[in-house]
Design a protein around this nucleic acid. Structure first.
Lengths: 201, 201
DNA sequence: GCCGGAATATTTACAATGGAAACTTAATGA
DNA sequence: TCATTAAGTTTCCATTGTAAATATTCCGGC
């Protein structure tokens, strides 16, 4: 191999990593095919061999984002004692990620930039992220008047209720709509805005 | 004026209207400077005299979106009897808009495409939209344990809680994350997921 | 009525982007 | 060893937003 690396050898993960870096440093705007390729030191059409166009590459980056989102949340959850404090930890973890990785959060939830319907890996990663909330919602006691539902539907409803709330907060913060201090700290914490749920034991 | 309209005469609103049309017909992707100008039948640099680049034009379109959002919600609210049903009407109205005008909803809440911080008109319109929810939250009785807050902060907290919830639901639906029937109808209504709030009288 | 400046549009040019096509280089395995 | 295939490069093109120079019309003061 005298003509050192015509073939990169490990381009696929390298491109994803480059994308993650650019996302942190320059935000969503900087995330172009050419910029990502250039950062790896490769021609701008090289990614075509590993991803289905820009959408494919962005989807792979978003998938990695979901995996990290899930992992960080999961860690926060396990560090907290079971019960209400775990619920709180999960919510705080969800928001913390959205605040610390704003551009990534936007990418993850932008159907414009990634196509969940078309990318299996992305859908799986997103589901794993949702799964953490799901686990939390299991212990959550949230009765409401109205027609009785099957246990499955009832569980689903609780999960979704929780997700709607947490995601709403994260989105508004991410979009800069949440009133905040001059230094960026929101006036109200997630937990201060969250309805009071019953948590069995 | 024999050389009919070198000057359009009413270009600014015409461009905004064209943008609204494209948004409905083709979604956010179709919303380019050139496409908007072409639809009005004008050169692609003409908008420069009326808007500050693409961002300015998109911001103006988003502002119109917020105004309509506010107006539709307001109408739904006024058609409902005061009290809990108004709360419900506002929530349903918020979501209805997000579902019926998905592309617009995305534009309105994408800091990437519009710059609220830089566009006064946009910020005002967005505030008017928030104001409808604000009015609703006034009658809402939502005590929580914890340190006592000033009436202003307390009111703010209630508004935000409501907004977080409604916006979270709308966002998830808009991003296609909400479980739904084959025909697109969400499995759970907003009201089915919403916490039960006390409404005075 | 006329004229000069200010608005308003157009034309032309340019840099950046994503993608297609043809080509080159390296790895692989029969 | 050598054809096949995977992986990268080059070149080219259409589309996009923006800037600069230019053209056309409008309007207020005379």
């Amino acid at each position: 191999m005298h003509k050192k690396n015509y073939h990169h050898g490990d381009l696929k993960p390298a491109l994803i990593q480059a994308g993650l870096d650019i996302l942190e440093e320059e935000g969503l705007e900087g995330l172009s095919m050419r910029a990502i390729a250039a950062r790896v030191g490769v021609s701008h059409t090289a990614p075509k061999n590993h991803f289905d166009g820009l959408h494919g590459l962005l989807s792979a980056i978003a998938a990695e984002g979901f995996r990290r989102h899930a992992a960080e949340m999961q860690k926060d959850v396990e560090d907290a004692p079971p019960g209400r404090e775990r619920l709180d930890a999960a919510c705080v973890g969800y928001i913390k990620f959205a605040r610390e990785h704003g551009a990534m959060f936007r990418l993850m939830f932008s159907p414009r930039f990634n196509k969940k319907a078309e990318e299996e890996e992305l859908a799986t990663a997103a589901a794993s992220s949702y799964g953490v909330l799901r686990g939390i919602a299991e212990g959550l006691n949230w009765q409401r008047p109205g027609p009785e539902l099957s246990p499955e539907l009832e569980a689903m409803r609780t999960e979704l209720m929780l997700w709607v709330f947490v995601h709403g907060y994260a989105s508004l913060v991410n979009e800069g709509q949440m009133p905040a201090d001059p230094d960026g700290k929101p006036l109200f914490d997630v937990l201060e805005l969250m309805p009071q749920f019953d948590y069995g034991n």
